[in-house]
Structures are given as C-alpha cells and as structure tokens.
C-alpha cells in the first residue's frame, strides 16, 4: 500500500537575491511500513525534504500525496500521523515547560486518554524511550543531550504516528552515545511498524541504521535533486553517480581505506551557487559533458536508479 507519493516536488528559496532549489523535481513513493535513508551533505536539501513530508514546508511546484490525498487537504491527518525529530534536541523542546507539561496535552489530544490513566500513559511512553519517569518534572536545560533527544522522540510518539522523520537526530550528540539513540529509533520502528525516514550526512551511521533494519532503500540528494536511489549496501559498495562516489570515497579515505577513483580526478573546490539548469554537480564533476550543462539527465537503472549522463 502506498503511503507517501511525491511527484515533481519542488521547493524554491530566495537566498540573498539568488534562487536556490531546496528540492527540485523529486519523484518518490514510500509504501506503508517502509523505511528509507536520506543521504547528502550540508545544503543538499535533506531538511527541506523532511519538512515537506511532515507538511511543514509548502511546495512551490509539484505534488505531495499522503495516503492518496493532496497534503494541503490532509493537514489534520499529517499532523497526527507524521512526526518530526529535530537535530538540536534541547532547543526543539519548549524551554519554559517541564517535560510533563510538554507531552501531556498531546497525549490527551491524540490518544484520547483522560484522568488517572493520563499519567500512567506518560510514564509508559517515557519508559518506552528508556527514560525514567521521575525525569518528567525537569526542564529541558536540566537534561543531557541524549536524554533530551529521547524526550523528543517520546513527544513525537505521543500522537501514535505512522511515520517518523528523524532529521540528523544524533549529529549534535556525543559520538559515544549516538548509536544508543539509533538503537532506540530502530527498535521503535520494529515494535510499532513505523515508517522511519532517517536523514543523515554520516555514511557510517547510515550503515549502522541499515545494519539494524536490513536492506533499506536510500536516496542520495544533491542540489535538491535525487541523484541516486537504491539499496543502501549497493550504493555504498557500488556508488554510481559521481557525487555519490565522491561522498563515499571521501568518507572511506577518512577511515584510511578505500579506492580513490574519483578523488584523484577531482580538484577540491567549494561552490556556493549551484547551477539552476542541468546537473547540479556539473561544476565539480570530472566527467562533465555538454549535455550535463543543459538538462538534468533521465533516470537509468544500472543496476539501481541513477541520474547521470554517464549511464543514460
């Protein structure tokens, strides 16, 4: 059963007088129960993608259907069923409220629990994210980063969602506890049959998520475009798009291993303005050809989906 469908979804931002694609012509289907990994570096459009999915970001062009219905006419359902976990755990919480006061109203509203049962429900929810219920009377600043992120996850779960969009949920946390949060998210996914949409720039962490959930589909975003899509382990072992290769090889090199097929060919450079026409990676790509500058390539299946003229 199809749950989410994006059709040519496009978000345009105006950034210091320049047009920027937060998202460009994204087509994607996510079925019920399916989880995906969203990969890409800073400014690629990962957050924009996540915000579109939860209905926080309006599309400039294109369509977004949630359970077959246009998102604009489906906000109430989206609000209940699709929840977001933010990168910065502390500031995502209401600073002036205790944990209890932050989460209770939502439980009341969405779980239709009343009276004494309410506290019990809250305690159970906190236990499910491995937080001791006594912590519920604390304020956000009295929590460690890891505790705060668990609370955020509890708050997201309070509506009984179907989809959890986790936008770099562990990037701000100490490296030593990151996989603990990932373990929590993945077991929640398994226990509750959630769709987990995991956004990250960290390929090693993505590998761990994929290890926990097994055979995840992943998309690689660059310049607001999906440039590659397929099974995560396949993308990691056999990246097709030059950008994906570049990303994988860079990460591998930092671990002191891996080939440097594309790295050897590339001169390091930074680009702030990506071209609006053609392939966004063209200015940095060692394989660039004329066609790349004029239009964005059609999809090729080789063996997984990739958008690059080398393959089409």
């Amino acid at each position: 059963m199809e749950l989410i469908r994006l059709e040519k979804s496009t978000v345009v931002f105006e950034n210091e007088g320049r047009k920027v694609y937060g998202l460009k012509d994204v087509n994607l289907r996510i079925n019920e129960g399916e989880s995906i990994l969203v990969l890409g570096e800073s400014g690629a459009g990962k957050t924009t993608f996540g915000r579109v999915i939860v209905g926080l970001q309006k599309l400039t062009k294109g369509k977004y259907f949630y359970r077959g219905k246009d998102y604009r006419k489906n906000m109430k359902l989206l609000r209940k069923e699709v929840q977001y976990v933010y990168q910065d755990p502390i500031s995502a919480l209401n600073q002036s409220k205790t944990i209890r006061d932050s989460i209770l109203p939502s439980i009341k509203k969405w779980r239709k629990v009343r009276g004494e049962k309410l506290e019990e429900e809250l305690d159970n929810l906190l236990k499910s994210v491995e937080i001791e219920p006594e912590l519920k009377n604390r304020y956000p600043y009295q929590l460690s980063g890891g505790q705060a992120q668990r609370i955020n996850i509890a708050r997201a779960l309070s509506t009984n969602p179907r989809v959890l969009v986790a936008d770099e949920p562990v990037t701000m946390l100490d490296a030593s506890i990151r996989v603990g949060i990932v373990d929590l998210l993945t077991s929640l996914k398994n226990d509750r049959g959630l769709n987990l949409i995991m956004i990250t720039h960290d390929l090693a962490l993505a590998r761990y998520v994929n290890y926990r959930l097994g055979g995840m589909r992943s998309i690689v975003i660059y310049g607001g475009r999906i440039v590659e899509e397929g099974n995560f382990s396949e993308i990691l072992s056999d990246p097709l798009h030059p950008y994906t290769k570049f990303l994988v090889e860079s990460s591998e090199d930092l671990e002191g291993v891996g080939s440097q097929e594309i790295l050897k060919k590339m001169v390091y450079q930074e680009t702030n303005d990506l071209p609006l026409k053609g392939c966004p990676f063209a200015p940095r790509c060692p394989f660039v050809r004329d066609a790349c500058l004029n239009s964005f390539p059609e999809v090729a299946e080789n063996p997984h989906r990739v958008f690059c003229y080398i393959y089409s």
């Binding site: 460690s144 996989v179 090693a204 590998r207 761990y208 290890y211 994988v248 671990e255």
Partner: peptide, 24 residues
C-alpha cells in the same frame, strides 16, 4: 575501549558496536 566500539565505521563488523552507557 567503550568509545572505540561505540562509533560505527564504513568497514568491519557492526555487531560489536555498542553505545557507551549514558550517565553523569
């Protein structure tokens, strides 16, 4: 020891990866 086995890598066995217990 905990730190080194808490961070996943692109290569190697993931089954040994374990977070460091949270605490003050």
């Amino acid at each position: 020891i905990s730190l080194l086995s808490s961070v996943p890598k692109l290569f190697g066995d993931l089954s040994k990866i374990k977070p460091v217990t949270e605490g003050k």
